[in-house]
Write a protein that binds this DNA or RNA. Structure first.
Length: 829
DNA sequence: AGCACGCCGACT
DNA sequence: GTCGGCGTGCTC
């Protein structure tokens, strides 16, 4: 098939390459290298190969050998796409580890790791980059042909182009066009990240002197009194705050938007659009030259000392304690040593202006890697990391796949965040855990930061596997909120409780309203009442699909299933016995909102839960209203816990903590703790000390105590374990198995089978589960976890992993688990 | 992931 | 008699 000019190649060895194909297949494949490419073939370069009858794929070379395969004739690889490797040896090693650890195929790891523009395949879609201007005359004939064809038909596949040029090797041409920014490769028509903008106003310096202002007033007062009001309001506001937004000024001055616009037109005000963010992820106000507080300084020193002995340090710092400043100091030191730093953030936190803040510090040496950036940008970051041009990368979980050359430090901010875990598709990796392995490969260090660390990390810190540094004070002297626990039982007895609101909470709410401050009330259940109960026969309507009790929603007047979305009309008589004595039991956000409206008719109350934020902009609208103080009290589910930052919120009320506390397993304890602590952290952040009221029937509950004391040393105990007789923390080695299948029955059998097998191997008492997080039922498959616990000096983790692997292989061959995927999610050491 | 091969049901 | 459903197996 190939012709060679005989003498041209001095090196006539026949070479073969092992490649990874971007497919979910078990094996790696071998291709033959054409002689003329012998000199340039290299591990880590991309090659184009034919796989199957007609499909072309981009594959990564993982090994070069001289041994021809024995059982078949290898096909020739068609092209080499790169002048130098795009994937480093270390990355290949990392991929291999990740694939084994999370039990998936190499090809799946490759798919997750490489930006799609680096993975041209015959079905890859090509389109023109409309945002880029260039000189068409400068294009080569073939490039011109492609561009013209794309004018007529906006999207072509690589095989289309192959036909168009009637030649097979089109990928190098496309690669060239991509690098010239002329085309886009397989860009998903996804909503790209748009930062939220707001208009800020500043007074034109020309009017800033006393005299100038007087003159301006003179003119405005006569001709446009509204505009004069606006300028006056501006001056008033400017006394207390640095940045003044247009909407604030409109509200303060009472002048319409039109007046303000005409002032902008007259250049009295200078308008400037700025990105703003309402999501709060430890992005304290950073002054250009900040000084660390004594406590921060001590933490920094402690972290550095611990890094001498430990690879991972957990920085446990309360909300607003200034973790970011510590990160910056550490990053500076790494850069000074010429090493790279990866700063991982959960997806949502990246949309904030923390990026801008860090750019101020690290200028052009900082790169941002985010799944919502387009592929051109992603490939650019990839190349710059590979060239060691970017010293710092700020990124979401997928940035652990970047080709770092010399990684000195990985910071995992908000370490507990579940968005570090990829659930679907494979590889179902946790970027925090992968980061620990990655850093280890580079002999780098990892700093995990969180105000509410995950149990795994906290446990590892307490058992001295990780180092631990703590920040217990807020930065800038603002005190942590006061937490008051109120017994619902007691207030009920004293009859001081009104509906669901204790006298303590009511007093605090009223105080806040008087001070024109805002309140967030947290009730972790949406709808009006979670159970409808017949008082005569105890019948409760259940979902026909999920067998859980239906929640009454007053808004729709129907009963809803919160798992599958099933709805039915609310019966007025009991379907079982015909009685009319139907009773609503329990309460959700709707009821809280309802009853609060009755008690505080003048307060502006809004509800924020899945039901009120389902439509496109409703979440944004609620957040805007809250920010602009159009809302006094926000009633919400756990949505309010995630990083909402509003200066005006001083009181947080947890309506009923018990619904969070009654679950038996330790994961639920962790979640409850985190939710309570996160919600509490929203109170009074800027300047004013906040107040948190926790209402509960069980004021002595351990989790509540931990929240108050900001310590979770004992959370590993759970009620259930106590009942079963565990009186000291068992030495947990937790294996979460994500068992996924579209057919839940088969799945349940698998998980049960697996845990039974594990019981046989490791003993009855060590295996907990399978546990099904119910949320995932919505998508019609389950992700289950099986937890193994070992007391000290128990079985080694490797033994456990090997056993699991054996069991899985077994039941894959017995066809019990056809189509299922079982992945362990264990601590990477 | 594709794609072919193959074995059963409902159709012009 | 054939069209087409998706189950199974293979791709260097």
């Amino acid at each position: 098939m190939l012709e060679f000019a005989d003498a041209q190649y001095t090196d006539r060895k026949t070479l073969f390459v092992e490649v990874i194909l971007p497919l979910a297949i078990a094996k790696n494949y071998t291709y033959r290298v054409p002689f003329e490419l012998n000199n340039i073939i290299e591990v880590g370069k991309r090659v184009v190969v034919q796989f199957g009858k007609s499909k072309l794929y981009t594959a990564i070379v993982t090994a070069i050998t001289e041994h021809p395969p024995e059982k078949y004739e290898a096909k020739y690889l068609l092209e080499i796409l790169d002048d130098r490797p795009v994937v480093t040896d270390r990355q290949l090693q990392f991929w291999k580890w990740l694939g084994e650890y999370y039990m998936c195929y190499d090809g799946e790891v490759m798919n997750a790791a490489l930006p799609s523009a680096l993975k041209l395949a015959s079905e890859t879609k090509i389109a023109l980059n409309k945002e880029f201007e260039y000189d068409r005359a400068a294009l080569h004939d073939k490039e011109y042909l492609i561009v013209e064809a794309l004018d007529i038909q906006p999207e072509l596949t690589i095989s289309d182009i192959s036909k168009l040029l009637s030649q097979k090797t089109v990928m190098p041409i496309l690669k060239e066009l991509f690098e010239k920014n002329i085309i886009n490769i397989s860009e998903e028509v996804s909503d790209r990240y748009k930062p939220r903008k707001r208009t800020f106003l500043t007074l034109n310096p020309a009017y800033q002197g006393q005299d100038n202002l007087k003159e301006l007033f003179g003119i405005l007062e006569k001709r446009a009194p509204k505009q004069a009001d606006a300028v006056l309001a501006y001056i008033k506001l400017a006394r207390h705050q640095k940045a003044i937004s247009k909407s604030e000024l409109i509200e303060e001055s009472g002048a319409g938007a039109a007046s303000i616009n005409s002032l902008i037109e007259k250049e009295v005000f200078i308008a400037e659009e700025k990105n703003v963010s309402r999501l709060y992820f430890e992005e304290e106000d950073l002054d250009a030259n900040f000084e660390l507080s004594d406590q921060q300084q001590a933490a920094l020193v402690s972290i550095k000392q611990q890094f001498e002995q430990k690879d991972v340090v957990l920085l446990h710092g309360v909300t607003s304690s200034g973790k970011t400043q510590i990160y910056i100091r550490l990053i500076e030191q790494m850069i000074a040593q010429g090493k790279q730093v990866l700063y991982l953030l959960p997806e949502i936190a990246l949309t904030t202006h923390i990026i801008e803040r860090l750019r101020q510090y690290f200028g052009s040496s900082i790169g941002v890697y985010h799944s919502r950036f387009n592929d051109n940008e992603r490939v650019e970051v990839w190349q710059k990391v590979l060239n060691n041009e970017y010293k710092v990368v700020l990124g979401a979980r997928s940035s652990v796949f970047l080709p770092f050359v010399d990684l000195g430090l990985i910071i995992v901010d908000e370490e507990h965040e579940t968005s570090y875990k990829q659930f679907d598709p494979a590889p179902r990796y946790n970027a925090r855990d992968a980061a620990i392995f990655l850093a280890n490969m580079h002999q780098g260090k990892v700093l995990l930061g969180s105000a509410t660390p995950s149990f795994e990390s906290y446990f590892n810190a307490r058992t001295h596997k990780y180092g631990l540094a703590e920040l217990t004070e807020r930065y800038g002297g603002v005190h942590l909120p006061v937490i008051e626990v109120v017994s619902i039982a007691e207030e009920t007895k004293k009859k001081t409780i009104q509906s669901h609101f204790t006298s303590v909470l009511m007093t605090d709410i009223q105080q806040a309203l008087t001070n024109k401050e805002q309140v967030i009330l947290f009730q972790n259940r949406r709808g009006y009442a979670p159970v409808l109960l017949c008082r005569i026969c105890a019948y409760t309507p259940k979902c026909i699909n999920c067998d859980v009790s239906l929640t009454y929603h007053k808004h729709s007047g129907k009963l809803h299933c919160h798992y599958c979305g099933y709805k039915e009309d609310t019966p007025s008589i009991c379907p079982a016995c015909g009685s009319t004595h139907l009773e609503y039991r329990g309460f959700g956000t709707e009821k809280v909102e309802d009853e609060l409206t009755l008690l505080l008719p003048d307060a502006r109350i809004t509800r924020m839960d899945l039901d009120t934020t389902r439509s496109r902009n409703s979440l944004q609208n609620i957040l805007n209203d809250l920010e602009e103080k159009k809302i006094d009290i926000l009633v919400g589910t756990q949505m309010v816990a995630k990083g909402l930052d509003f200066a005006g919120v001083t009181v947080i009320g947890i309506i009923n903590a018990d619904s969070l506390l009654k679950y038996p397993d330790y994961r639920a304890n962790e979640r409850s703790y985190q939710l309570l602590a996160q919600v509490s952290g929203r109170a009074g952040r800027r300047g004013k000390q906040g107040k948190v009221v926790i209402q509960t029937y069980d004021p002595a509950h351990r989790v509540i105590k931990q929240v108050i004391e900001n310590d979770y040393s004992d959370l590993y105990f759970t009620e259930m374990e106590e009942r079963r007789g565990f009186h000291y923390p068992p030495f947990y080695r937790i294996i979460n198995l994500d068992v996924k299948h579209k057919n839940s029955d088969i799945l349940y059998n698998q998980a049960t089978y697996l845990s039974n097998e594990l019981r046989k191997h490791f003993g009855e008492e060590r295996v907990v589960g399978p546990q099904v997080p119910l949320v995932s039922r919505i998508r019609n498959y389950y992700i289950q976890s099986i937890m193994l616990k070992f007391e000290k000096d128990g079985v080694s983790i490797n033994k456990v992993k090997t056993t699991i692997r054996d069991i899985i292989t077994q039941f894959q061959t017995t066809k019990l688990s056809k189509g299922s995927i079982v992945q362990p999610d264990v601590d990477p050491y």
